[in-house]
């Protein structure tokens, strides 16, 4: 394998990895604040792509407007899910919340099948994202540049929110000690609702970027990105936001390099991600970036 081929594969890996990272940010943020592994994250992502799809293809809105509306609607969906599913089990043992999350995930998938139908739909891609540049033998697809940029931007915004605003301070306080925060007269439910809104909006951003890169959406499309983002979040140390980005990039790059160097193992790339998950949980349960969680 010559250098330009290697660079090309590395770029493919970074491009895929930054998508995982983008989705993992929301995953890990919700966990960091309320200690809930939100298994419905991938399915919220799926719903968001349908919101955008309906905006662009059915109501014929400009794509950027549809994306904004989709992100807002998805944030609202996050609040509703928290209200209907997670708030009632807030003080139950943590396993109840986990099982509820799995239930929400199934509910969204099957509602999707009933409402949107099982046949995949084609997703719109704006022209400026549909270009290929050539740089010294390496083909750079314009989306592959935009995805890491969006990831970096959202990462910065999440840090700003958490460490530079009052709401962020409240979120970090909830992460530390929910009961105590309640005693201090802060409306915990509102803080958590907002956390879900932000988490779901991040899922929407990730989902829409995903759908632009792989322009095919269906009601079960959220499962795999959701699982991969979960693995990425655990690799980076779940609850740790920059860890999630690191984990996502690592997972995407190793997956691509595995397929590139060992083509006969290509069918096992998903299995590989989960083997990686098991190894991390066995030998470094706090993840690579360690326990530097929100708070």
């Amino acid at each position: 394998m010559d250098l330009s081929l290697f660079l090309q594969q590395l770029l493919n890996g970074i491009s895929l990895g930054s998508l995982y990272a983008l989705i993992a940010i929301g995953y890990t943020m919700v966990y960091g604040i309320i200690r809930l592994i939100n298994f419905a994250h991938g399915d919220i992502l799926m719903v968001s792509t349908y919101f955008a799809y309906f905006g662009i293809s059915v109501y014929a809105l400009p794509w950027w407007l549809s994306v904004i509306i989709a992100i807002l609607l998805t944030a609202l969906l996050g609040i509703l899910i928290d209200l209907g599913a997670y708030r009632p089990v807030r003080h139950a043992p943590r396993i109840s919340a986990l099982i509820t999350a799995i239930g929400v995930s199934f509910l969204l998938e099957n509602l999707g099948l009933v409402v949107f139908g099982g046949r995949p739909k084609a997703f719109y891609r704006p022209d400026f994202l549909d270009k290929t540049y050539e740089l010294g033998g390496v083909h750079v697809f314009s989306l592959s540049i935009w995805v890491p940029l969006v990831t970096a931007l959202l990462l910065a915004l999440v840090f700003l929110l958490l460490y530079r605003t009052r709401v962020g301070a409240a979120m970090r306080a909830v992460a530390k000690d929910m009961e105590m925060v309640q005693l201090m007269g802060i409306d915990v439910n509102r803080v958590i609702s907002l956390t879900f809104a932000v988490g779901s909006a991040l899922a929407a951003a990730g989902g829409i970027m995903w759908a632009m890169k792989y322009p095919q959406i269906n009601p079960l499309m959220g499962i795999l990105p959701g699982l991969k983002a979960f693995v990425a979040a655990v690799i980076g140390g779940i609850g740790n936001i920059h860890g999630a980005v690191l984990g996502g990039l690592l997972l995407g790059t190793t997956e691509i390099l595995l397929v590139a160097f060992l083509p006969s193992l290509a069918g096992y790339r998903d299995a590989f991600a989960f083997v990686l998950l098991i190894l991390i949980l066995l030998f470094r349960p706090t993840g690579l970036a360690g326990k530097d969680t929100i708070g």
Binding site: Q9, N12, S15, W210, I256, L257, V259, A260, A266, R269
Partner: peptide, 12 residues
């Protein structure tokens, strides 16, 4: 090779 449901084929 790939797998049903794969979305990224850039490596292959």
């Amino acid at each position: 090779y790939c797998q049903t449901g794969d979305q990224d084929f850039s490596a292959q």
